[in-house]
Design a protein around this nucleic acid. Sequence first.
DNA 1: CGCTCGGTTGATGCACATCAAAGGCTGTGG
DNA 2: CCACAGCCTTTGATGTGCATCAACCGAGCG
Lengths: 235, 235
Amino acid sequence: MPQTNSSDTALGEVLAFPLLHGFERKMVSDLCSGGEVRVQRHREVVFNHGETASHFGIVLTGAYKLSRLTYMGDETIIHFSSPGDVVAALVMPQPNPIYPVNVRAMGPSRMMIIPRETYLKYWLSNPLLIARIQQLLSSRMGRFQNQKIMQRAPLRAKMAALLLNLLESKDDGADVEVPLPLTRKEIADSLGVTVESVIRVMSDWSKQGMVSTSDHRIRILKPGLLVEQVNEPSE
Amino acid sequence: MPQTNSSDTALGEVLAFPLLHGFERKMVSDLCSGGEVRVQRHREVVFNHGETASHFGIVLTGAYKLSRLTYMGDETIIHFSSPGDVVAALVMPQPNPIYPVNVRAMGPSRMMIIPRETYLKYWLSNPLLIARIQQLLSSRMGRFQNQKIMQRAPLRAKMAALLLNLLESKDDGADVEVPLPLTRKEIADSLGVTVESVIRVMSDWSKQGMVSTSDHRIRILKPGLLVEQVNEPSE
DNA sequence: CGCTCGGTTGATGCACATCAAAGGCTGTGG
DNA sequence: CCACAGCCTTTGATGTGCATCAACCGAGCG
């Protein structure tokens, strides 16, 4: 059972996200009315695909994966959500919304859960907020497209692109770490390939000193070489 | 050069789309202020990926493909847009938006082009309209996800799913036609495979009498068998 | 009449899937 | 405290679906 916290302390957290930047505390309090903070453990489920969508969520800490099952019964990861990301907001305006994906914690994480009514009442009527939500969606859409463009690229290019995408906008020269715990299986499920294939590429990279893994945290030791992998299908 | 029409007659057309269902003519007139109707020929370009996004569009008639170039220089089709669909609306709220995709007519088509200012002024402030736009996006997102789920399925399953998706919600028993002109190359570019592979599957299906093509219009003669293709990877 | 565009077919090769086997690590319950 | 189950990782052997390359045909068009 997920624990429930006072959401007062969480107000300050959401306030700090770009999504609500510049909003007054009073306003944010309205936007979160009825909301509660859920604390999840590794692999714990928040929403199930197909269930009635009574709430939407804002990721506070940790990370979540949004996934669906294939016709074969195995998981396809649609999206990785980090702090500040909204989940299931897009379906809120629908008459009888259902969750479009499974949502599951990756490592210990916290999410603010807010009732649908609040979205309809306070969020939808706030043009600035809507504009920002559309920006979030726009960037998520953009990632989808970037993945689609990589469809025909070799696996190592797709993997490199995925990791670089997760790194987002860190500085380039230093060695950096992927900001969420990531198993080979999850990489595979995200790219639509098998674990074994991912492992073969990763261990090549490890041997070449491009990356290193410890406790599911992936460090990129030579970002430059990763970028090469994306652009040069040969070699 | 695309022709420009009086947009008065077009007002009635957009009024009929689900997007604006129930809106008053006066309101719709505001929503389209500054808009003009563009008439395109086959393969004519409306927007180019990367250009400054000064307008968004509503498809009136015909069809458009939204595409991007891969690192290899070949085209990836992101989405097929039919009448009633909005194009580039999602990026309008951004500070300095650029078009996220190339937009190109498939066969003779017409699109209403509306300036960004109108979106910011009239669209963004209308909660009902925003809710409907989010529904459109939500369904587009859903298609992306459905495609992603099919990633590991054999090609014929992906092709069957694509065709059934384009058919949308026609009656099942009768033979039906895909509502837009579609070359094998376009199917290939949409699925991220080669033309040859698509052709091999299509000609198998033709021999079995499942589908037939004439002048780029694809008729589904036995929808039931297509559905089987999606679900049964073997055989 | 040569051009481009769309469709088709066959031969060959390769990237990744599949299958099999094994070891480590973690949490859980007897 | 140990046994066990579930999850994650790894490596090797073998198979295959689709890519690649090459060649050709027909239709429309300036």
